[in-house]
Design a binder for these strands. Structure first.
Lengths: 133, 133
DNA sequence: TTTGACCTTTGACCTAACTCCAAGGTTTAT
DNA sequence: ATAAACCTTGGAGTTAGGTCAAAGGTCAAA
């Protein structure tokens, strides 16, 4: 059984983060002390680690809420449901990667066309391009 | 000379966006009508297009403020200054791309290891991994 | 002349995921 | 016994880039 500061320290997050997760339906302490302190169980600790691992994998907190629902009653779901979520996230990431790659390439092209010397920027091709493409 | 709605429509943004740019020091109308209406000049229109182009290239508004400063007195800057900004942005994008690529690969690995069938998720390898990696 | 489309300002709201503060109660160590 | 370190709640603030609403003034057409 842990108080909020103990669990937070053990998982390297702040107490406020745990309160935030609670308010957002991700992690409710098993109970409260008679004076109202949050008391977390080992299961809670495990659930927090689940949350942090999923976050590190790129899931949003609302994705994680969904994963926790599934996790809470695994037998109600098919493997395909879970795999679908993961693949959707892969696709989402891929879309962002593609977009940023396009931007990167455009900028690199811009940079490559620029002399980059100590000369005044009066004839800078980068500025010219942005001004009148 | 354009009123705010005219310039906004011409550039496919909302009047509020122009007011926002003004508040943030990116685009000040050349003057005001006697009743206080914003009046934009052709130069202003060109500057707005510069802003929108730079934005489309992935520059933040504060990057753009800097670019506009340079643009306003090109002779005070060297080509190297401008090229440096662009290359820093390329590097910034590259870092994000790398990070997202790592996430994508981890998730893909997770998905690949999952049967993805209609079976119950009781033994789902994805959930198992998130639970106890 | 009156209706509707435009303009003004101020200030609130949005997403995401926290983070911090204030004012107060509790626990622990010395 | 008392001070430090913890806990509680509610609510505000953060970043980025807008977006919207309210209350009012202006302008053009029918």
């Amino acid at each position: 059984m842990y108080k909020i500061g103990e669990l937070a320290a053990a998982c390297k997050v702040k107490p406020d983060t745990l309160r935030f997760y609670e308010k957002n339906g991700l992690l409710h302490p098993a109970n409260r002390s008679d004076k109202g302190y949050r008391i977390y169980s080992d299961d809670d600790a495990q659930q927090l680690r689940f949350i942090l691992r999923a976050k590190a994998m790129g899931f949003s907190l609302s994705d994680i809420r969904e994963l926790l629902n599934i996790e809470a009653s695994r037998s109600d779901w098919a493997c395909a449901d879970v795999k679908g979520m993961v693949e959707a996230k892969v696709q989402e990431l891929q879309t962002k990667i593609d977009e940023m790659t396009r931007l990167r390439d455009s900028l690199q092209e811009l940079a490559d066309a620029c002399c980059g010397g100590p000369e005044s920027a009066i004839h800078c091709s980068i500025l010219d391009t942005l001004e009148t493409k």
